[in-house]
Design a binder for these strands. Structure first.
Lengths: 332, 332
DNA sequence: TTTTTCTCCGCAAACGTTTGCGGTAACATT
DNA sequence: AATGTTACCGCAAACGTTTGCGGAGAAAAA
């Protein structure tokens, strides 16, 4: 059970004081080149690294970010995290990943832990049931910037980075119009979610305004299984017509695809299919599914920039929307 | 920028010493019930929580585990992590998740960071290029137990928890025999990976020994795209015969499914399909794909148990294999 | 020579805990 | 009345850093 080397050890071996070693290691001007060299050599040899606990206790800063997500099995979050990690590494920060399991209680615990650890900042996608802003405001009081991403609260004055729900919905709708599809079945998520409302509204509006009397039917499903079930029961009415299904999210898409396969139908011959997705699931099928991409890595870059501004002192809140792009497969 | 409450603040408000507060908070017998109550009340009121940095500096123990994985977009790891987190919460540990991006250099950095943070233990799935055991042995010298899972090193004397490659391969083979399939196309991963060798060997052996002259052809693919390409070029030779495709992993399965769809074939009528998988992808198709499950959560439970034993002082190394089970879909 | 200015370095306090040790009452034992 | 117990509590050191301040010696200015 060996100990890590400390400033003290180095100081003793070199017959200098601890402060000298500390300063030498960070190129303080008070230190002569000679001493500086010797200290750094020995530190290198001993593989010295400052004890982060001691440093933090002294300086109250941790040089690490926390990312909190409801779930990890999610391609979108994965690319978001990758993106943040990449940037953070450049700036000498490390990042810790927390999983709230979509449970507000666990979310609270994580938040508290972050506060005590005095993380430099938090990126968080809140749970669907988070309604109390108070703990987040408390972080601010403690000087810890919070950047919300993807799942963000209603609350106005905070930093939010979101995918462009409207824009993605518009891209999908425009593609449908372009293909001159007369009938559209739109399958959306939970009616109460703001993301559902935003996507639905924009999608319907664009179709109405630009499409010459397209027949649009919309339904809602709260889970993958429900989406499958609904699609399964609705398909008989549509088959034969020229129509396209629009899936609001990956979860919906997964269910819809199962129903389609189960009916023995295939895209784009029997029906068209278009979705809003992060790109993972669309690539599992042949032909690949055309989708409006919600890019986690884009969002990551934007969020990180915002974070660095906050740390630099910018205090005003801002909402940033990332526009998406259409990835053309062969499903429509 | 408010400060967190400290022992000192509580002590001052109550006119007692810091040590008394500290002891009262942990029900030390030296403290009178009266004082204990008062301290705890105020601590509650002030939302006191010990500063983890100070505690660690003093005690050299952190009560937190690290999990290191090559990638997060992986259902298997996700269920492993969930499982560990669940157990850890019970024992009052928290867990941090690190992602090595399958890069040995980053893996090193993470390991170093864990050492300095004096984490209580590490669960790690190593990168495919990790060959140097020395950093891991060094953890041991520092008294930090390391449990390898899933991707484990060759090195003998360390703690390893793995999925039962042989057992899973056997389950798949037996299912094929049971269905009396005369022709089998086995698609495997990179020939150099130990996991490939283990699965291939067992699969072939079981088929040979128990199946009455089953015709088995095996091919290798190093990526999803390659698997698709190979399957696509091979399918014409097989279609018409009664045959089944076996996919060694999810990655392979994804590619194979695309080729199958592209040919317009469907399971189980045109061909049978069976895989070794964590269960995510098989559920995306209809009919769902039959697979031998490699369970991340099982592995998590086993790994956590082993970890707790290590912390309790058990020093001898052990390799544990988790047997898998067959999940029947309708693809064969 | 005396004074000023640098250059380089050490002292010591502080961050918030934990914990061995010792001390002071009050009470029980001779 | 003297001694031995017991129940509570505080002192102070230590964990490994960082940093303001001051000090010694040498070089430059007077």
């Amino acid at each position: 059970m060996r100990q890590n080397p400390t400033l003290k050890k180095i100081a003793e071996r070199l017959n200098v004081s601890i402060s000298t070693v500390s300063r030498a290691l960070k190129d303080h001007p008070d230190i002569s080149p000679e001493t500086g060299r010797k200290v750094k050599e020995l530190a290198e040899l001993l593989e010295y690294d400052p004890n982060p606990y001691a440093v933090n206790l002294r300086t109250h800063s941790s040089k690490e970010f926390a990312i909190v997500v409801p779930s990890l099995s999610n391609f979108f979050y994965h690319s978001f995290i990758s993106s943040i990690e990449e940037e953070a590494r450049i700036y000498g920060y490390s990042v810790m990943i927390y999983r709230s399991s979509n449970d507000p209680t666990i979310e609270q615990e994580i938040l508290k832990s972050c506060r005590h650890k005095r993380v430099s900042g938090i990126f968080i996608a809140i749970t669907s049931e988070t309604d109390n802003m108070e703990p987040f405001l408390k972080m601010d009081v403690h000087g810890i910037p919070v950047i919300f991403f993807d799942k963000v609260p209603q609350y106005e004055s905070c930093n939010k980075i979101c995918v462009g729900d409207e824009h993605a919905a518009m891209l999908a709708a425009e593609e449908i119009i372009k293909k001159e599809i007369p009938n559209v079945l739109g399958i959306f998520g939970d009616q109460n979610m703001s993301i559902t409302k935003a996507r639905l509204k924009k999608f319907a509006t664009v179709l109405q305004q630009n499409g010459n009397d397209i027949n649009l039917k919309t339904v809602h499903a709260c889970s993958s299984a429900e989406a499958e079930q609904i699609t399964w029961s609705l398909l008989p009415d549509w088959v034969g017509k020229k129509f396209t299904i629009f899936c609001m999210s990956d979860e919906i898409l997964a269910g819809v695809m199962k129903a389609i396969q189960r009916k023995g139908l295939s895209t784009p011959t029997d029906l068209g299919l278009i979705a809003i997705s992060d790109g993972m699931i669309p690539q599992l099928f042949y032909p690949e599914i055309t989708y409006a991409e919600t890019s986690g890595s884009n969002l990551g870059k934007l969020a990180f920039n915002r974070m660095m501004r906050c740390i630099a002192g910018s205090s005003f809140a801002q909402t940033i929307i990332d526009e998406s792009k259409l990835v053309v497969g062969g499903s429509i």
